[in-house]
Simulated scan of single mutants.
Amino acid sequence: MSLTQQDIDFIKSNMAVWLAEQSLGKPPAVYEIELRERMVRVEEELKHQRELMRQGFEQMDKRFEAMQVNMDKRFEQVERRFEQIDKRFEQVDKRFDEMIRRHDRHFLWLIAFITTVGGLVIAAGKLW
Score class of each variant (00 low, 15 high):
126 K>M: 09
75 F>Y: 11
89 F>I: 01
98 E>G: 04
49 Q>C: 10
105 R>E: 02
61 D>G: 14
85 I>F: 03
113 F>Y: 00
7 D>K: 05
57 F>C: 12
39 M>Q: 15
106 H>I: 00
111 I>K: 00
62 K>R: 12
71 M>H: 10
13 S>Q: 11
78 V>I: 07
68 Q>A: 09
120 L>R: 02
40 V>H: 10
25 G>R: 04
50 R>H: 11
4 T>S: 03
43 E>N: 07
43 E>Y: 08
95 R>M: 04
16 A>W: 04
13 S>I: 11
8 I>A: 06
91 Q>D: 05
85 I>H: 04
32 E>W: 13
55 Q>P: 07
56 G>L: 08
4 T>D: 04
122 I>S: 05
31 Y>N: 14
95 R>F: 02
4 T>Q: 03
48 H>A: 08
38 R>G: 14
63 R>A: 12
100 I>W: 03
116 T>S: 02
29 A>F: 13
65 E>Y: 15
69 V>E: 08
95 R>A: 03
55 Q>S: 11
116 T>W: 03
106 H>N: 03
25 G>P: 03
67 M>I: 11
69 V>S: 10
108 L>H: 01
11 I>R: 06
89 F>L: 02
32 E>D: 13
120 L>C: 02
22 Q>R: 15
54 R>C: 12
128 W>M: 10
86 D>K: 05
93 D>A: 01
33 I>W: 14
97 D>A: 05
32 E>S: 14
10 F>T: 13
35 L>G: 13
106 H>A: 02
38 R>C: 11
16 A>H: 08
34 E>F: 10
11 I>H: 09
82 F>V: 03
98 E>K: 05
112 A>R: 01
78 V>R: 15
95 R>W: 01
